[in-house]
């Protein structure tokens, strides 16, 4: 019996040590790869944000730009992405950052920390894709607030890292945590789809009774992004992308008024420019659903944004 336990113990020590070493090595190589990626010298505009900018701005039309928007991205994550990309690419002069009405709601906080209704799927996706590239304080924040999901997503996270090393990725967009322009959402624009998005963005439950709050965390990281850019002389444009009128009309007024009073504060104190298009009355055929443009919509909208960038 004793030799059995001794051997089992020895093997366990060997296995745990080897796994930890492999994990550390993989992570180190992964971070190294990420930190050595260079964008083309001509790229001076970064487009960041969530699925709104992901679908609205086509970087193949927008010259000298690259779209790294990723669906459901919290500003905490965008801040880390921005730091990573800009630290290796000092030629960046402009950041176009998605800032729609729902970006002020606590919806993305709940997704990030897996709190309450509808959150787990997105939480898992975010943790598995982004955890390794976050700075240590943000990693700790996730561990403190969302440990079960962090543990559950370790495996896909490691797989992603290994895949990126095996295939020797040399472009940010090959990494799963970095988004890219996504040409439209294959959904039909109808009342239920619009209603679903409204409930998703502004209410904590599916009945539409309890409204989301204004997110302090989103605000904190939005300001961090702006400050980070300011320190590096990067101009920040906040982009409120077009939404369908049916969607716009159902946004709780409280969010709209709070949004504009908040933006006023940002414009005054942080010198940002708002590119404000939610009410631009695009025809139905430009939309994938109530709040995302499709390929056609993006082809019309992208030049509009481009013309506003100095």
């Amino acid at each position: 019996m004793k030799p059995f336990f001794i051997k089992l113990f020895k093997f366990s020590v060997f296995a745990v040590t080897a796994i930890l070493c492999l994990y550390a090595l993989t992570t180190a190589l992964y971070i190294y790869k990420l930190n050595t990626i260079k964008l083309g010298d001509n790229i001076n505009t970064l487009i960041l944000g969530d699925s709104q900018t992901q679908t609205a701005v086509n970087d193949s039309i927008f010259t000298n730009s690259i779209n790294y928007s990723h669906n459901s991205e919290h500003y905490l994550i965008t801040y880390n992405v921005l730091k990573l990309v800009v630290s290796n690419n000092p030629q960046i002069r402009n950041v176009v950052l998605g800032f729609s009405f729902h970006n002020t709601s606590t919806f993305y906080d709940r997704c990030l920390f897996n709190e309450g209704n509808k959150a787990e799927g997105i939480s898992r996706m975010l943790c598995s894709r982004y955890f390794t590239m976050l700075d240590n304080s943000n990693k700790l924040m996730l561990i403190e607030n969302n440990l079960p999901v962090v543990l559950k997503t370790l495996r896909p996270g490691v797989l992603d890292m290994m895949e990126s090393l095996v295939y020797n990725y040399s472009n940010y967009q090959d990494y799963r945590f970095i988004g890219r322009y996504y040409p439209g959402i294959k959904r039909i624009l109808n009342d239920s789809v619009v209603k679903e998005s409204i409930l998703w963005h502004f209410y904590t439950d599916s009945t539409g009774i309890e409204m989301e709050n204004f997110s302090d965390l989103q605000s904190e990281y939005l300001k961090k992004i702006i400050s980070f850019c300011k320190e590096r002389n990067i101009k920040v444009y906040l982009l409120n992308t077009p939404v369908h009128q049916d969607y716009y009309k159902q946004i709780p007024q409280e969010f709209i008024s709070r949004y504009y009073s908040y933006i006023k504060d940002l414009e005054e104190n942080y010198n940002v420019t708002l590119l404000d298009y939610p009410d631009c009355k695009f025809p139905d055929e430009y939309f994938g659903d109530g709040n995302h443009l499709n390929r056609l919509g993006a082809s019309v909208f992208t030049p509009m944004v481009m013309s506003r960038i100095e």
């Binding site: 060997f14 296995a15 080897a18 796994i19 492999l22 495996r155 290994m162």
Partner: peptide
Amino acid sequence: YLILILIIFL
């Protein structure tokens, strides 16, 4: 064995 365990995990 370790490779098997890793494959099982991953």
